[in-house]
């Protein structure tokens, strides 16, 4: 199904093209609300800057990997993502029951859904990342090289092995990683995306 992008999709494109002129609009128009929310809830301006940046990088990755099409206004989508990320961060820091000031933004189903997709994407990314680091050093290196270089022939040449051996090694390492992910507790909580 092809979705009709919202006119705010320009912000997604700006992330993909690193267009600082349009990106500065994001900071100008949408971040003041987020900053004030975080500051009201035990955070600092630096916290806000981090949360905002990490959220934007996640959206960038989702756009790059999953061709994210924004079908709702960016404002509400972005605010909700940052807000929930901040609440998670507070939980991680073990901040004792701070009064969470609820904001009064109402959100539509379509926004809720878009937010959820991004969150699931991020959880999956984090899970894959954690599991990747559990692989042996050799596997990590081999996989990094194959994904960066893309051509298996070149990888084989670089590593001084045959093409068939390189492929076999790659699939073995990927197999190990598959098993790690499959057995991770978090994987079962993660809905399929």
């Amino acid at each position: 199904m092809t979705l009709k992008p919202h006119s705010d999709h320009i912000y997604i494109e700006a992330l993909l093209t690193n267009n600082s002129r349009v990106l500065s609009k994001i900071y100008e128009l949408f971040t003041p609300k987020i900053i004030s929310y975080i500051k009201k809830n035990s955070g600092s301006a630096d916290d806000a800057q981090d949360i905002i940046q990490e959220t934007l990088v996640t959206i960038y990755h989702q756009a790059k990997e999953k061709n994210l099409v924004l079908t709702c206004p960016f404002d509400a989508y972005f605010f909700l993502l940052c807000k929930r990320k901040w609440l998670n961060e507070l939980k991680k820091r073990g901040v004792n029951r701070v009064t969470i000031l609820e904001d009064e933004t109402s959100i539509s189903d379509i926004e809720e859904q878009q937010v959820e997709e991004t969150e699931i994407f991020e959880e999956q990314q984090q899970l894959f990342d954690t599991m990747f680091k559990k692989l042996g050093e050799k596997c990590q290196e081999l996989l990094k090289t194959t994904f960066k270089i893309k051509s298996m022939e070149k990888v084989a040449e670089l590593l001084g092995v045959t093409y068939g051996y390189a492929r076999k090694k790659k699939s073995q390492c990927m197999g190990q990683l598959t098993k790690l992910v499959k057995n991770a507790k978090a994987f079962h909580q993660l809905k399929k995306y």
Binding site: Y27, I52, Q53, V57, Y60, Q125, F128, F132, K148
Partner: peptide
Amino acid sequence: SLSSKFSNEGEEQNLRKTLTKLG
């Protein structure tokens, strides 16, 4: 996921630079 992550590492770094500046 890994293919996208590793092949876009440089691009991600550049984006982060822009975002840090704007932040």
